[in-house]
Simulated assay, not measured.
Amino acid sequence: MVVMMFVIGLFIVLGILLINCKGSFLIAGYNTMPPEEKEKYDIVALCKFMGIMMFSLSFSMLFWLLSEAYEISWLFSFGLVLFLGIVVFMLIYINTGNRFKK
């Protein structure tokens, strides 16, 4: 339970960093691009989206914590489905439509 609270807290801190556009170096793929390639992307929109996704993932993990605290097994299943749904949505949204290109 303590580990889960630490992970949720870490995700919230990362979400705050990303919402404030201070954590662009944490976005995988973006940090390894050459500078001329980075100029093609709207880093503010990308960071804000990733920050919101970090908050969403931490919210879904909260169901795991509640499941353990109150011993309600369906809460864990609900949180897991929500977590996986957010990850799938995030992957599809980021990789289609050139949404974050300038």
Rank of each mutant, 00 (worst) to 15 (best):
M1W: 11
M1D: 15
M1F: 15
V2A: 04
V2S: 12
V2G: 12
V2E: 15
V2M: 07
V3T: 14
M4N: 08
M4D: 09
M5F: 10
M5E: 14
F6N: 13
F6K: 03
V7T: 10
G9H: 00
G9K: 06
F11R: 00
F11C: 13
I12K: 06
I12C: 13
L14D: 03
L14W: 04
G15N: 01
G15Q: 03
I16G: 08
I16Y: 14
L17D: 04
L17P: 00
L18S: 11
N20G: 05
C21A: 00
K22L: 11
G23I: 06
G23Y: 05
S24Y: 13
F25M: 10
F25T: 09
L26Q: 05
L26W: 00
I27P: 01
I27F: 01
G29T: 02
Y30K: 04
Y30W: 06
Y30V: 01
N31C: 07
N31I: 01
T32F: 11
T32Y: 12
M33R: 00
M33K: 06
M33H: 01
M33G: 03
M33Y: 07
M33Q: 10
P34C: 12
P35C: 05
P35M: 02
K38S: 00
E39G: 05
K40F: 06
K40M: 09
K40L: 11
K40A: 02
K40I: 10
I43A: 08
I43N: 11
V44I: 01
L46Q: 02
L46V: 01
C47W: 06
C47I: 01
K48P: 02
K48M: 00
K48S: 07
K48E: 08
F49A: 06
F49Y: 12
M50F: 02
M50C: 10
M50N: 13
M50T: 12
I52M: 13
I52L: 09
M53R: 03
M53H: 02
M54E: 07
M54S: 03
L57R: 01
S58A: 13
S58C: 09
S58G: 06
S58P: 02
S60E: 04
M61S: 11
L62E: 02
L62I: 15
L62S: 12
F63W: 13
F63I: 09
F63V: 05
W64V: 07
L65H: 08
L66P: 05
S67Y: 05
E68P: 13
A69D: 08
A69Y: 15
Y70S: 10
Y70L: 14
E71P: 14
I72D: 09
I72V: 14
S73C: 03
S73Q: 14
S73K: 15
W74F: 15
S77M: 08
S77C: 02
F78Q: 10
L80D: 11
L80E: 13
V81A: 12
V81F: 13
L82G: 05
F83C: 10
F83E: 15
L84H: 11
L84E: 13
L84S: 07
I86Y: 02
V87F: 11
M90I: 06
M90F: 15
L91K: 12
I92A: 14
I92L: 15
Y93Q: 07
Y93K: 09
I94W: 09
N95G: 15
N95D: 01
N95A: 04
T96P: 08
T96W: 09
G97V: 12
G97L: 03
N98H: 11
R99M: 00
R99A: 00
F100Q: 07
F100D: 08
